[in-house]
Design a protein around this nucleic acid. Structure first.
Length: 937
RNA sequence: GGGCGCGUAGCUCAGUUGGUUAGAGCGCUACGUUGACAUCGUAGAGGUCAGAGGUUCGAGUCCUCUCGCGCCCACCA
């Protein structure tokens, strides 16, 4: 019926074909109807939408493999499984890409104008964007492409508007003048989360601000009418500062205060100097006036608790327009805020002419030099501190006073916090719960306006009619001002933070704000799989928006996958050149090998380390496993194809020990895999499948049944083996499918279906195996376990004594405990084929005076393997002596434990019993070894 | 400055509620052309579970401290 399989698995030959088949047959398409009718439970995952600018990297590979694993597993379990794919317009990132493209043509976005620029970005998106979803199909992702979404789709844009206007109407969105993070390269405001703190080696500049008047009280300072650091407070501290600052504060007959700053250029916008109210060094200067150098302005000295007397000089320059603390302090003291860094770096009246129009770092240098020339630069120190950087372009971010739109977060955060605390939202690994809650507990308002062109335009219009000035937030573009009726409306030029639309993703993708069938059927979703790096950006905000607009958490479980790093534990990145292209891996090793490697390495809470210099080493285990499975399939198909296969239930009475054993193992594997997947222990789950297929099915079962397919075998025995082999492989491939969908399907489709069983069309939609009490068989496991131990022992002895492979040996057993006796009766021939044992003789294993290998099996049976004429006696004596030493040490430890009355009285009876057995067994073994040694001497 | 996590075989990691003699894959050694598979098979070497102390009959597992590494948060200018 089909051509024979090649001895080696060639993934490239089957993967694309299978994916096409699955896709064409609509297996990945979810239906709302059965869910709405109550016939099926939904299982829904929404993809973390990759940026349209993104190209597939290993991080996507890991993240999406995990999602596909969960979706495929739940789909097989009978859930109406929906995986919603999509991509994110990625405001800044995408605009940057297109602007760079323009720059190569010598143009800026301003040359094109807003409309043409946005059209250009759209063209780029249509052309090169979103290829990542196609790439993900190569690794088998079973998302529902009929529901593919883009954050700038009309529907999602409508959701954005609805949310914005609704929050505005509720008073949860407001516009105001506050300190925000400004990226001078991207020329836009950023949220706090988008400004990443990075440790930087900077400088601390000590600047002198002359005192020019005020309420100095003669006599309290060191000199009449002058302030000096030395002696001002008389404390050790003051001396320390004085020393540190290199002398007194006198200068040309006047006095000054020294302030320390990391950003000296901002001094042009200073409006005060603040000191701690209780700082004795400065107490008398509070209220005094200082001359702000270079500007000729006069600024007061104010007292505020915020100031830490320990840091720097204990005197802080106050620049409300460029520092959040200073801004707060400025408000408390009713100080003005002077912006000295306008976005366009053009003329600024506040700034003295020599410093106008300079870049901030040029300005820094110019200011420092100017102050130095005036003798007002006291000193410069090295200073390590954290400086915020733009998360998109890594430029140092500038805090700046600016009029922006904000979301009032506190009211939204409370329910999101409650959801986690009440267990309606769970994190895996659990440790992220605290991080999430801590962020929400300390939430700050979210700056959502961006001075970009690519994104959702803020749905707010300002009436420009004289004397009106109305602000209109509207779901539909307004044509006239509802207040004055005029039509001089101007839309806010800004767009929204790209994460604003992402926050709505779990319900906007399902059709909200319309009450669609999809929304009713599939919201809330079940699991979110993403990286912890976007816990605040995205996850927390989705929870808040989901609760606010749907009244339910958007997902019950959040699985945080680790970071993909190289073998030196560095983040994989383009600039380091240490990345691995998942598509190259697919090409060389197959999608299944890639998935296996990623899943096996994805222990929750750990990062994944992949060696980009040795792909062979990294991905060979997955490829080898696939090849093993392939050959299991070859073995089975050679024996099954064209043969009548019966259901195991029908041949139940004819099943032999090995059959009952593997069916019992299959049930156990199904239980293990399911249990691990339910707890997101994907690495353990795949290990359980691996163990079943390789260590149990291939290593033992296939070997055990080989004789039953020979000509001499009885028909009934072969029929039982055939039925069992088909059932075991069928179950194993089902368990394997969510992890390695391609190879499992390729083999499974060729498996003959037992008589009277309806063929399922594909593993994708096939039933997930349940553990079955019917097939669990502890007795069979004990019996085969005993046989496996015997075979293993003989193999070990043969190997240790160097018995040639082809040489059949005789084995003497003192006795055979029940499990072993039955196993030998049933599967005795396995002893010959698997361990080269020609004959088993029962009786006294000691075989007086004869040289031979000796071992004791679990349960106490002694095993003797005559080795006369085969082995070197001297060598054997040495080995036995060493073994005896080891045994005696173990025996001593066990006896010591048993001599401990505490142990005997407090430990559970079975534990003590086990210890007793152990001791008895050790004693037994020791005695026998000793006797043997003596006999050989 | 707060908070969290990690340290188990040469490497990458398991070890689920404390309980037989701590496991896997890779790597390493020896042997192997047995009609599924050399991308394989069989056997083996290799671990004072970071260190110290404590709780317990019993600790890789729980507690404390130390050392080393990592991550998150934070307005010391």
């Amino acid at each position: 019926m089909s051509e024979p399989l090649s001895p080696q698995y060639d993934p490239g030959a089957i993967e694309p074909e299978l994916y096409r088949r699955w896709h064409e047959r609509g297996y990945f398409h979810a239906h709302a109807e059965p869910v709405l009718a109550g016939e099926r439970s939904p299982y829904v995952i929404v993809i973390p939408p990759p940026n349209v600018t993104a190209r597939l990297h290993m991080g996507h590979g890991l993240n999406n493999t995990l999602q596909d694993l969960l979706i495929r597993w739940r789909r097989m379990q009978g859930f109406e499984a929906l995986w919603v794919p999509g991509s994110d317009h990625a405001g800044i990132a995408t605009q940057n890409v297109v602007e760079r493209e323009l720059a190569r043509e010598g143009k800026t976005r301003y040359d094109l104008g807003r409309e043409a620029f946005v059209e250009r970005v759209w063209a780029w998106v249509r052309e090169t964007g979103a290829t990542i979803l196609e790439q993900l199909q190569a690794i088998g992702c079973s998302f529902d492409l009929s529901r593919n979404r883009f954050t700038l789709d009309p529907g999602l844009s409508r959701a954005v508007r609805e949310v914005f206007v609704s929050l505005y109407e509720k008073g949860l969105i407001y516009r105001g003048n506050y300190i925000i993070n400004w990226c001078p390269r991207c020329l836009t405001a950023l949220s706090d989360e988008e400004a990443e703190a990075e440790e930087t080696q900077g400088k601390l500049y000590y600047l002198r601000y002359p005192v020019v008047g005020g309420r100095e009280r003669p006599g309290t300072g060191a000199g009449a009418g002058t302030f000096t650091f030395t002696g001002a407070g008389g404390s050790e501290d003051a001396h320390a500062h004085a020393d540190a600052h290199g002398g007194d504060g006198e200068m040309g007959g006047g006095s000054y205060i020294v302030v320390a700053t990391t950003r000296p250029e901002t001094m042009l916008g200073d409006v005060a100097v603040a000191v701690h109210p209780e700082d004795p060094r400065y107490r008398d200067l509070v209220g005094a006036e200082l001359e702000l150098p270079l500007t000729g302005r006069r600024i007061p000295v104010v007292a505020d608790d915020m100031v830490d007397p320990e840091f720097g000089t204990g005197a802080v320059k106050i620049t409300p327009a460029h520092d959040p603390n200073d801004f707060e302090l400025g408000r408390r003291h009713d100080l003005p805020a002077l912006d000295v860094m306008t976005p366009e770096a053009t003329m600024n009246e506040t700034v003295p002419p020599p410093f106008r129009g300079l870049d901030r770092f040029e300005a820094r240098q110019a200011v420092v030099e100017a102050l130095d020339r005036l003798g007002l630069l006291e000193k410069v120190e090295e200073h390590a501190h954290t400086v915020p950087h733009c998360y998109r372009c890594d430029t140092v971010v500038e805090p700046r006073l600016s009029e922006q739109w904000f979301v009032r977060m506190r009211p939204l955060a409370e329910p999101a916090l409650a959801a986690s605390r009440e267990g309606r939202l769970r994190f895996t690994p659990k440790s992220w719960t605290g991080v999430y809650e801590h962020w929400l507990e300390n939430i700050r308002d979210w700056c959502i306006s961006r001075q970009l062109w690519w994104g959702h335009r803020i749905p707010v219009w300002y009436c420009r009619a004289d004397g009106c000035g109305e602000t209109i937030a509207a779901r539909e573009d307004p044509t006239h001002c509802p207040r004055c009726g005029g039509n001089e409306l101007e839309q806010d030029p800004d767009v929204l933070d790209t994460w604003f639309s992402s926050a709505l993703w779990p319900f906007s993708t399902l059709g909200w704000p319309d009450e669609t069938r999809d929304l009713a059927a599939f919201y809330p979703t079940q699991t979110l799989v993403t990286g912890p790096d976007i816990l605040f950006f995205w996850v927390a905000r989705m929870v808040m928006m989901g609760l606010e607009f749907r009244g339910e958490v958007p997902f019950r479980d959040v699985l945080l996958n680790g970071m993909v790093r190289d073998h030196l534990r560095r983040k994989m990145s383009k600039s380091l050149g240490n990345g691995i292209d998942p598509l190259e891996v697919v090409q060389r090793f197959g999608a299944d090998a890639l998935r296996y490697t990623l899943i096996a390495g994805a222990a929750p809470g750990t990062d994944l380390y992949l060696n980009y210099e040795n792909l062979e080493e990294t991905f060979a285990p997955g490829r080898n496993f696939a090849n093993k499975v392939w050959n299991i399939g070859r073995f089975a198909l050679m024996r099954l194809e064209g043969r009548r296969v019966r259901r195991v239930e029908e041949v139940r009475d004819g099943l032999e020990l090995a059959d009952r054993w593997i069916l019992s193992r299959l049930s156990a594997a199904a239980a293990d895999v399911t249990r691990h997947l339910e707890a997101f222990r994907v690495h353990e789950a795949v290990a359980a499948v691996y163990r079943f297929l390789w260590s149990e099915l291939a290593d033992w079962y296939l070997e055990l049944i080989k004789p039953r397919f020979t000509a001499e075998a009885e028909e009934a025995s072969r029929e039982a083996a055939t039925a069992t082999l088909a059932a075991a492989l069928d179950g194993g491939l089902r368990l394997l499918h969510p992890f390695m969908p391609f190879i499992s399907e390729a083999l499974w489709l060729r498996l003959p279906v037992p008589d009277g069983v309806e063929r399922e069309p594909s593993l994708v939609v096939a039933r997930w195996p349940e553990p079955s009490a019917e097939w669990e068989d502890a007795e069979a496991e004990a019996r085969l376990g005993a046989l496996m131990e015997l075979i293993g022992t003989v193999r070990t002895l043969r190997s240790e004594y160097g018995v040639p492979t082809g040489r059949k040996v005789e084995v003497r057993l003192s006795q055979a405990p029940e499990p072993l006796r039955v196993a030998l009766a049933a599967e005795g021939r396995a002893l010959e084929s698997l361990a080269g044992v020609a004959e088993v003789v029962y009786g006294d294993a000691r075989a007086n005076g004869q040289a031979g290998a000796h071992a004791v099996l679990r349960g106490g049976a002694e095993l003797f393997l005559p080795l006369s004429g085969i082995i070197d006696l001297e060598r054997e004596r040495g080995r036995l002596g060493a073994e005896l030493d080891r045994l005696e040490a173990q025996l001593r430890a066990t006896e010591a434990r048993l001599a401990n009355t505490n142990f005997v009285s407090k430990a559970p009876a079975e534990v003590v019993a086990r210890e007793r057995e152990k001791a008895a067994s050790f004693r037994d073994q020791r005695d026998k070894l000793s006797r043997k040694l003596a006999a050989l001497a």
